[in-house]
Design a protein around this nucleic acid. Structure first.
Length: 371
RNA sequence: UCCCCGGUGGCUCAAUCGGCAGAGCGGGUGGCUGUUAACCACUAGGUUGGCGGUUCAAGUCCGUCCCGGGGAG
């Protein structure tokens, strides 16, 4: 069976699940890590490299592409897949998080959110309908509803008011893009800050409607690890078991293992790509800061257990040299490796779930990053 | 030989009228979670070319020597 939106669970291990998510551009195995390609590019990495290291879904951003180069321009080029030459699934974020992170330039109204471009100060209005329209024009496979992500520390009253509005916006989004329309999925985003009753209410309201998947938003906004994990554990089981569950913006290897254990299927995070560009690399031996002097004459591969091009071909000494001298190749090789690592880690988790051995797999990852 | 310009952290250079010697880069290290991030932060590092003088106080003013650059002869 192959139809976009179809989500078939193949195996369950504790709360962890292994499944297949069908989209108009192919089937994605979960749990999955989705590299972030905000501006229609996963920074420093070409699509053929992404495919080679096992990426199945790439993220792009409504806010950024709407501002530049413009969603209509992308549509005239045949949509994002053709434009960026990535022919597997694309998930687009709605711009809700950008509205949050650009706070100060924005005003939230019932109708939508009014904001000023960080590029030229021009004024714009995003409504839930507009966000859907933009994402359809981009040709996204998985669209996200416009939501409001409240800052860590937001009080109960505002968080409650905000989550209710996010629910109303989600319902308007679904009306703008009815279930099953045009082979494109639409995911709702649950909110509720750091109040469990509000989290439960948000989930209850949104799961009462026919969305193709459900995301947990509003985590990794400055809270402690313990709080983040506590809320992952709380929210995941409340989400429908037969739909994909997506934890937005998370996270570190430990966070992802925790999420998978809680029953999350999808993750995205800038960490592997941003940290790669900033010199922090994830390996089977733990984190490696390639800037450090101790690697200056280290002829060993970055990660002896990693089959990626970077690790097969270059020494730590060379990678350190490239980074220290600001050579552009450093960004590509480091990004390629970090993405490889995250993708191998999540596909490894999937294999472990299929064999009923996820707990042991998770323990192995946790041992590497024990604080 | 004379004239002019200069000598300050590893490098390139700031420092008002004489008033707590700084920056950028480089060095060492940390951070980064739905990307305004090839970014941000911390830290080490000084006999201000030498010697003497004036002054409450000198990188700064005076004398002298050394070094570098330019010019004249």
């Amino acid at each position: 069976m192959h139809r976009p939106g179809y989500f078939s669970i193949t195996a369950v291990d504790g709360a962890a699940r292994a499944a297949l998510l069908h989209t108009a551009h192919g089937v994605a195995p979960t749990p999955i890590f989705m590299p972030v390609g905000t501006g229609a590019t996963v920074k420093a990495v070409a699509p053929d490299d992404l495919e080679a290291i096992g990426a199945h879904i790439v993220l792009a951003n409504t806010y950024h592409l709407y501002l530049r180069p413009g969603h209509e321009l992308v549509q005239r080029r045949g949509g994002l897949h053709a434009f960026m030459a990535w022919h597997k699934p694309i998930l687009t974020d709605s711009g809700g998080f950008q509205v949050f992170s650009l706070s100060g330039l924005r005003t939230i109204l019932e109708e939508g959110v009014e904001f000023r471009s960080h590029l030229d100060g021009s004024k714009h209005l995003f409504t839930p309908e507009k966000a859907v329209e933009i994402q359809r024009a981009l040709g996204s496979d998985i669209m996200m509803v416009l939501d409001e992500c409240v800052a860590y520390g937001t009080d109960y009253a505002y968080t409650e008011q905000s989550l209710e509005r996010t629910t109303r916006w989600a319902i308007r989004s679904r009306k703008a893009h009815p279930a099953g329309a045009a082979d494109k999925m639409l995911f709702a985003i649950t909110q509720g800050g750091f109040f469990k009753d509000l989290r439960a209410r948000s989930i209850e309201q949104l799961t009462g409607h026919d969305f193709d998947g459900f995301a947990v938003g509003g985590l990794s906004v400055g809270e402690s690890k313990n709080e983040m994990h506590e809320f992952m554990d709380y929210c995941a089981p409340l989400l429908p078991a037969d739909k994909p569950r997506y934890l937005m913006g998370v996270g570190t290897p430990l966070d992802i293992m925790h999420g998978i254990a809680a029953g999350i299927d999808m993750f995205d995070c800038v960490l592997p790509t941003r940290n790669a560009r900033n010199g922090t690399l994830y390996t089977s031996l733990g984190k490696v800061n390639i800037r450090r002097k101790e690697y200056a004459e280290d002829d060993s591969p970055l990660d002896p257990a990693c089959p990626c091009y970077t690790c097969r071909t270059f020494s730590r000494a060379y990678l350190r040299h490239l980074y220290a001298t600001h050579e552009l190749l450093a960004y590509r090789l480091n990004s390629l490796h970090n993405l490889s690592y995250f993708l191998a880690m999540t596909s490894g988790a999937r294999e472990a779930i299929l064999r009923g051995r996820f707990a042991a797999f998770r323990a192995g990852i946790e041992a590497l990053y024990a604080a």
